[in-house]
């Protein structure tokens, strides 16, 4: 991707977000008492100022894209972004792991969820040390539990099944 294309996309996206904020999000989700006489002191003032600045930056990005003569791709594009569908599959899998972590934390407890998440991630990243990964998946969450629960006094979620001392 070139800078011109990137700025064009970002400019359009930024302007759309700013318009969404001005015409829908701020009126709907920012509440102001009815007795505020001066707009400068209203809770609505600051979000509107920021949304206005967002429009300006969005227009700046568009102007930059439209006036830029160069359309050369970024130098590191090929090395940073491998081709094929496998990277997208791994990203999807990582997103699923994160969702499962959110579900697992209150039900399974933090330690067991962390163990499963560790092992899943290590295999997702195609580790060349599977045994070490499994050992670390068990030890790291237990050590962190020991520190946070017994040293820092944090109430680590224990879940509904196996409770740790």
């Amino acid at each position: 991707m070139s800078e011109k294309t990137l700025h064009l996309r970002l400019g359009i996206f930024t302007c759309l977000v700013a318009l969404f904020l001005i015409f829908y999000a701020i009126p709907s989700f920012v509440f102001s008492p009815s007795n505020v006489g001066n707009i400068i002191l209203s809770p609505l003032f600051w979000p509107y100022v920021l949304a206005g600045l967002t429009v300006i930056v969005g227009l700046g990005l568009l102007a930059n894209a439209l006036t830029s003569a160069k359309d050369t791709p970024f130098e590191d594009d090929e090395t940073v972004h491998p081709e094929g569908s496998a990277p997208w599959m791994r990203l999807g899998a990582l997103a699923v792991i994160m969702v499962l972590v959110m579900v697992g934390l209150p039900t399974l407890g933090m330690v067991w969820t962390a163990m499963l998440a560790f092992a899943a991630c290590a295999f997702l990243f195609r580790t060349r040390h599977p045994v070490a990964a499994v050992v670390c998946a068990v030890i790291v969450p237990l050590l962190l539990y020991a520190f946070f629960a017994h040293v820092a006094g944090v109430a680590i979620p224990q879940g509904n099944f196996v409770r740790l001392p």
Binding site: C121, V140, L144
Partner: peptide, 12 residues
């Protein structure tokens, strides 16, 4: 590839 899962757990 083992360090990064460890970082994830540390973050959580």
């Amino acid at each position: 590839r083992i360090l990064m899962p460890g970082v994830l757990i540390l973050c959580i």
